Computed example of a mutant assay.
Amino acid sequence: MVACVHVEQPVDRDAYRRAVGRFATGIAVVTTRLGGIDHVMTVNSFASVSLDPLLALFCAEKVARFHDAVLAAGVWGVSVLPDTAEDVSRFFAHRGRPLAGQLDGRPHHHGGLGVPLLDDALATLECRTTAVHDAGDHSIVVGAVVAVATPAEGSPLLYHEGRYRRLG
Rank of each mutant, 00 (worst) to 15 (best):
L158I: 02
R17P: 12
E153Y: 00
D38C: 03
S50V: 08
D83Y: 07
G105K: 02
A56Q: 06
T130R: 12
E61Q: 13
A149L: 09
H138F: 03
V142H: 02
L54K: 14
G36N: 06
V78I: 12
L125Q: 08
D137R: 02
T32I: 05
T31C: 07
F23Y: 15
L55G: 13
R17D: 13
M41V: 13
L34R: 08
D38F: 05
G154L: 06
G143L: 02
F58G: 00
V75G: 05
L167D: 03
L125A: 12
G26I: 01
L158H: 04
F23E: 12
H110Q: 10
D12P: 12
V142N: 08
D134H: 05
P10R: 07
I37A: 15
S79D: 05
E8I: 11
C59D: 10
V141K: 00
V11T: 14
R165H: 12
A28H: 06
E161G: 08
F66Q: 08
A28Q: 10
H133L: 15
T150R: 10
P116G: 01
S89P: 11
T84P: 00
G21R: 04
E86H: 03
A72T: 15
S50I: 06
E8W: 12
L103N: 03
A85L: 05
R33S: 10
D104I: 09
T25E: 14
H67Q: 07
H133R: 06
R18Y: 10
V145F: 01
G101R: 07
H133M: 14
V145I: 04
G35V: 09
G111Q: 06
V132E: 05
A100Y: 04
T84Y: 04
L118S: 05
